[in-house]
Every structure is written in C-alpha cells, then in structure tokens.
Design a protein around this nucleic acid. Sequence first.
RNA 1: GGCCCGUUCGUCUAUCGGUUAGGACAUCUGGUUUUCAACCAGGCAAGAGGGGUUCGACUCCCCUACGGGCUGCCA
Length: 467
Amino acid sequence: MSAQVVTRFAPSPTGYLHIGGGRTALFNWLYARGRGGKFLLRIEDTDRERSTPEAMAAILRGLTWLGLDWDGDVVSQFARKDRHAEVAHEMLVRGTAYKCFSTQEEIAAFRAAEEAAGRYPVFLSPWRDADPATHPEGAPYVIRMKAPRTGETIIDDQVQGRVVIRNETLDDMIVLRSDGTPVYMLAVVVDDHDMGVTHVIRGDDHLNNAARQQMVYDAMGWQVPVWAHIPLIHGPDGKKLSKRHGATGVEEYQAMGYPAAGMRNYLTRLGWAHGDAEIFTSEEAMKMFDLSGIGRAPARLDFKKLENTCGHHMAMAEDAALLHELRAYLAAAGREPLSEAQNVLMQRALPFLKSSVRTFPELLDKASFLMASRPIMQDSKAAEALDTVSRGILKSLTPRLQTASWTKEALEPILTEIAAENGIGFGKLAAPLRAALAGRTVTPSVYDMMLTIGREETVARLMDASQ
RNA sequence: GGCCCGUUCGUCUAUCGGUUAGGACAUCUGGUUUUCAACCAGGCAAGAGGGGUUCGACUCCCCUACGGGCUGCCA
C-alpha cells in the first residue's frame, strides 16, 4: 500500500501568475489528480516588503481560470512563522544548528578576503563550534544550520537525474534571522513536511537549493520528498521568458481569448510528452501524466501551436460550456457583454462556428453577422458585390423566401434555382448574399447565416441591401 | 569567478546502443469548397563541434562552444 500523493504549488505573491508558474501548478495538479492525491496551495508571503494581497488575488484568479482547483485552504507561509522558529530552535537543541553572532560587516569582510585569495566566497562562521559559554550576552544572533563540511549531498531528481553537490561548496545557511523570522529555505521545508507533501515539483531554478533543503530534512530526521525540478519556459528566441516577449501572465492569455482547456493542453505538452499524444482532455492528461515524461531542456513558447491546440478544444467543447466561457472572456477582456438576443443567436450558431475558430476573438469575428443589427453596413468589398444586377437578384429572391420552409434542404433548391435563372454560378449569388447578410465578403456559409438569424431578419436584410 | 543543469527538423517532442531518426505545429504543393477557414493527400526539414568507448552510437564517457540557474539575514 503506497501513501497518498500530495503535491503543492507555492508561489510568492509579488505579481501576477506567470505562465511558467501556471505550468508548474498544472504539472503538480495533473500528478496529484491522476493518482487520487491532493494538490495544495501555499502562498510564500514571508517577504513582507514585496508581498501584496492584490498579487495573491491575481494568482488565485489565474489558477481558477486555468481550471486548477486546490484542496483545502490556501496556506499562508507568513502565518506559520512561529512554527518555523520552533523548528529552528529544535535544530539548536539537536545540535544541527548553532547561534552565529557574526555581524554583516564581518561576513562581508570574510567574503572579500576569500575572493581576493581566489577561493570560494563561502562564509565559515567562527561560532560554529564555539562553546556556548563564550556567547556574548544579549547580542543579536542568527541561527545557522550546521551543514556537513565534507562529503556530498545527492539529489535524486526524477527529471534531472542524480545530481551530486559537494558539501564544501555550501555554507552554513541561515535558518532564522536575527529578528527571529524564518528564512525561505527553512520555511519551505517545514511547511512541506507539515503539509505532508510527498512530491516537490517546481522550477529548476531551485535545483541547487534542494541540496540545502535536503540538509534540513536530514537535520530534523524527516523524510525527504520526491524531487522533480522542471526546466523553465523560454521566449521564442530561447531567452528567459520576460515582458519583452509579450504576454507572460496567465490572465493575459485569458484576455487574449484563448480557451482554458486549450491552454492546459498546450502547457501540458510544453516540456512533457507521452509518445505521440498531442490533443487530449485534462482527464486524459491525468491518466497519462508522469514525471518521467518531463524533458530536461527548457521549452520555448510557440503561439502558432498554442492557437492550433486551442482550435481543437474550441471544436471539442460543449456548446453550453463554450457560451459560458465566451461570456467570461468578454468580461475579462473588457468587451461589451452579449445582449439577450445575441445570446440566443449565439447558441444557435455555436455548433458550426466553433469548428473552425481557435480563439474567442476569432469566434466573435465569425459571428459578426449575428452580432450586427440592421441596417447592415457593408465594407468596401461587400459594397462592390452589391452591384445593380445583384440587387435585382436579391430582390427577386425575397418573395420566394417568404414562403419557403426554413431548413437548409428547402432553401438550397431555391437558391440554386435563382442562380440558374440568372445564368450565374452559385458562387456569384453567394457573394451579394454575404454582403447583404453580413456586410462582408468573408463569412460563414450563407445557409448557416440564414438559418441562424431566421426568415424575418434574412428577408429584412435582403430588402435593405436591394434598395 | 565557482558550482549545478541543459543542447534531435524553424518550434514542441519520440527514440531509452542496431530505425529509411517517428509524430505534431509552422511552411510549401495539390485536392475539396459558395468566400475565409476547417478538412483530406503529399513535400521540405534535425542529432551544436571535437575526441573517445564499442562490431555498431542521437543514445555511454571526456573536452569545447552556446544557453540557463544558483552562489543573500529575497523567494
């Protein structure tokens, strides 16, 4: 019987949810959900200077949009500071940590001297093995971990493999500051242990830190979690993803109109693979996802593929869910909401509209014929299609539409007949029809449009255009 | 500077010592079509460089180059 899997996502609330962070959260979610485990959320807000409630709210919004639900309450790391301090003092008792009275000036001087001598600037505290009797009374101190000076620390990473770090390159890191507050490196370990985290899946910028953290686990006699350090996401030019590449925040992608399911699929495949699987639902991804499928090289963002993936998910989506997400998009992008009438028409049009669009803006563009209201304004190309002859044809068409039953089967013969009577191909008839119905030359099928807006509106638009 | 990680088509990747190095996106060509898409068929396209190990290396080892990360009383 194996213990339940517990993963977590632990962002710092210093800004919006970064796309890389979103993917890290996604991997943790997928791994836990696919194994009946728990996915926890912890906010690393110990840096009081940079942490803001706005940032925390933005991160939660980002995760929610991505569809990543977490178990239990959000844990505040700052709120657990007493527990962290307690562990630091327990390390003191165990003899795996010590009080260090060195001032920052002394440390800086030590480092400068080491560097000048061409050695590693690793600080070696003179208080490491000092007799407590020699401790200065009432002087401020930090608690440092008594890290092994020799040998090596081995991180058995599920993605990076066996990483060996020589202990001499690591210093006795501070676990508790002189003001009694814990340092991140201690807080993560204590929190992960207390929360029962079994698998730590995070960015590989923490790979080196893992060695230090593992020392804390060892010092406390706690079980080390399974490590999985995933590569960061890069911009299209291969450099670290930053603002100049465009969108880096998850919420920006929502505002650009990418469907969340497509975003999840794309992000899952970015840096992870399972054979030739490309398009899949989250449920399928949960079944397939495993740590061994994660690549070791950083991946670049490719908007073309993102769009393509989103296109598949648009087509796969259920109409009701898609309509719901469309309205959420409109709100997120600050666009005008659908009117009652537009909502009804949209429901009718979604089945054929969704099959050929990638994003919500594209969907709305294809739906412009139902978003517009009379009189329909023609763009220049559409106006060209409405020459005198065409207007006459449209005019002769309207009486027949009045009596036809409103199905594609019934309309098709009427339109082909009209085209034949006028000695033109169907294509020549479709152009002015498009212009009259949508005001453009690029539109969905004329039948789909007519069926969507209905007989009355169709006839009215044709009459308008034939004037 | 030191330490750690990485490098297969333009991009995401498969391969886990023996393959015509496969798939997807993009791109190009053709087909279909009432327009744009979508769709269908096909084409182009890759193991960073150099040394080893081996009967045989994209796969294992070393060096170099390039990219990234860490090196804080930040997280």
